[in-house]
Structures are given as C-alpha cells and as structure tokens.
Simulated assay, not measured.
Amino acid sequence: MPRDTPAAATVTGAAASTPEPAPPSVPVTRGLVVVGPGAAFGTELLARFGREGFRLGVVARSADTLDRVAGELASAGLTMRGAVADVTDDAALASTLERLAEDLGGLTVLVYNAKLSIRGSALSVPAEVLNQTLAVNVTGALTAVQAVTPLLVDRVGATILVTVAGSRTEPPSGRFALAVGKAGLAALAAAVGPSLADQGVRMRTVVLDGKVGPAGPLRPEVVADHFWQAYASPRGAVFRLAPPGLRRSAATLPLEV
C-alpha cells in the first residue's frame, strides 16, 4: 500500500519560498505465484487473490494448462503471467520463479500445489515409481521454497502455502505413492517452517480433507477462500478444511484431493 506523505510545512514571511512537491509514492505490488494450478480449484484460488489486488503468476507443466487458466481468469476480468516448467528440473524451476516474481513486481505468496499421482498399492509400487512421485510432490516443493525465500525476505506478508490432502474414512485404493508424497510434503513444511520464520517468511500447510469438486464435498470456491484465510490469518501453521460432519480415522493415509 502507498505510504502516507506528511503535509509540507507552511512558511510565511518575505523569505517564504514555495515548497517543492513531494515525490509521488510508489505503491508496493503484491504478487502470487501458483505452481501446479490443477483443474480442481486452481483458477478459483487465483481469482480469490486477484480480487484482493494481487498480481497473478502460474507455473504449469504444459502450455495447454496455462491457456486454460488464462482463459478462465479472463472471463472474470483478471490477467496472469504464466510459464512452463518441470518442477523436477531444479535449475529451470528456480529461474522460472525468479523471472515470474520480477515480472509481477515482487513476490508475496507462493502456493505449491504440484503433484504426481501414479496408481498402485503399497506392495505393487516399484521404488523407482515412488521416487518419481516424490520428485514432484516433495523435492520440487523444496526447490521452490529455496528459490523463492530470498525473494520473499523483507516482503510484508511473505507466505508459502503448500497443499496437503487429509485422511478419509473410505480412501480409494491404489493411491499409495501419492499418500506417501503428501505425507512427505507435510513433514517438509513442518521442518522448514522455523528456518523460514527466522527470515520473516511464513510457512503454512493447507489440508484439504475431502475431494474437491463443483458438487462437493469441498467446493472449489470454498477451497479458494480457505487458502485466502490461511494467508490472511495472523498466526497458525496448519489450516484444515473438512466437510461438515466428516469422521476422521487415524488409520487412513492422506490421499488425493
């Protein structure tokens, strides 16, 4: 927000001179970058922050995704800057985030929502497949955090949000690799949080305890507002959104949102 400029003092008398006009205030821009917007709620999330005055950026793994999101935002009167990058390519992801932050006039919020879900049970998923999912769901998040932290330092409200799926009473079968990946992402956020806090950057985990869709149980616009509340809240580390009356079981694993 622009700073208030104090009014110039009035000088009277023969020696009075006309005060020079104060230089115009330069408004501080707020930028949001979403890595992996997804089809479930990515556009709604971007639009929620866009309505609050944020400049919007998107990193996706395909140009088709960028075109889709840009078109959906345009229908809401919003624009975005987009870039294609593979989150498993450390150098490419880091340089893409730096370039987007510069294009937006500064970065305030990063949302890491990228994921890779490969079907298979705990006894059938090969180790190499698990490593592929971890590269997207966990290692890519670490790369993003390390790349944007220097860009967020000294920015008012600097925040990193990561998306984690919650437990379900009747989890679908064959999501073992994603369950492990989301659990790893939650652990990463908890582990890196204190180090980020020392630099004035907030790490916040958004837990979506149910499938997101227009028919629910978690509607996209509700999820988008939950992300906004997770950002705007003055304190807190984990922000869970669950359908009313959901019965949680500690025995179930976090699964796909």
Rank of each mutant, 00 (worst) to 15 (best):
Met1Phe: 13
Asp4His: 10
Thr5Gly: 04
Thr5Val: 15
Pro6Asn: 02
Ala7Trp: 05
Ala8Pro: 03
Thr10Leu: 14
Val11Ala: 13
Ala15Arg: 10
Ala15Thr: 05
Ala15Asn: 05
Ser17Cys: 01
Glu20Gln: 13
Ala22Pro: 15
Val28Ile: 10
Val33Ser: 06
Val34Pro: 07
Val34Asp: 02
Val34Phe: 07
Pro37Leu: 05
Ala40His: 09
Phe41Gln: 12
Leu45Gly: 08
Leu45Gln: 02
Leu46Asp: 03
Ala47Gln: 08
Ala47Leu: 12
Arg48Val: 05
Gly50Phe: 13
Gly50Ser: 11
Glu52His: 12
Glu52Thr: 05
Glu52Ile: 00
Arg55Thr: 12
Leu56Trp: 06
Val58Leu: 09
Asp64His: 09
Thr65Leu: 07
Asp67Ala: 15
Val69Phe: 09
Ala70Leu: 02
Thr79Lys: 12
Met80Glu: 05
Gly82Val: 00
Ala83Pro: 00
Val84Leu: 15
Val84Phe: 12
Ala85Phe: 10
Asp86Gln: 11
Asp86Ile: 14
Val87Pro: 08
Val87Phe: 13
Val87Trp: 09
Arg99Met: 12
Glu102Phe: 12
Leu104Ile: 02
Leu104Trp: 11
Val111Thr: 07
Asn113Met: 06
Leu116Asn: 11
Ser117Thr: 12
Ser124Leu: 15
Val125His: 06
Val125Ala: 10
Pro126Ile: 06
Glu128Asp: 15
Glu128Ile: 01
Gln132Glu: 15
Gln132Gly: 00
Thr133Pro: 03
Leu134Phe: 14
Val136Tyr: 06
Ala141Gln: 03
Thr143Phe: 15
Ala144Met: 04
Ala144Val: 09
Val145Lys: 00
Leu152Arg: 03
Leu152Asp: 04
Arg155Trp: 08
Arg155Asn: 04
Ala158Glu: 07
Thr159Arg: 09
Val162Arg: 06
Gly166Asn: 06
Gly166Tyr: 04
Ser167Gln: 13
Arg168Asp: 03
Pro171Lys: 06
Pro172Ile: 01
Ser173Gln: 09
Phe176Met: 09
Ala177Glu: 06
Ala177Met: 13
Ala179Glu: 05
Val180Asn: 01
Val180Gln: 04
Ala183Pro: 00
Gly184Lys: 02
Leu185Asn: 07
Ala197Val: 05
Ala197Met: 08
Asp198Gln: 14
Gly200Tyr: 04
Gly200Met: 08
Val207Gly: 02
Val207Ser: 02
Asp209Thr: 14
Asp209Lys: 07
Gly210Ser: 09
Ala215His: 11
Gly216Leu: 11
Gly216Val: 04
Arg219His: 14
Asp225Trp: 02
His226Gln: 03
Gln229Tyr: 01
Ala230Ser: 10
Tyr231Ser: 06
Pro234Arg: 02
Pro234Gly: 01
Leu241Gln: 09
Pro243Ser: 04
Ser249Phe: 14
Val257Pro: 08
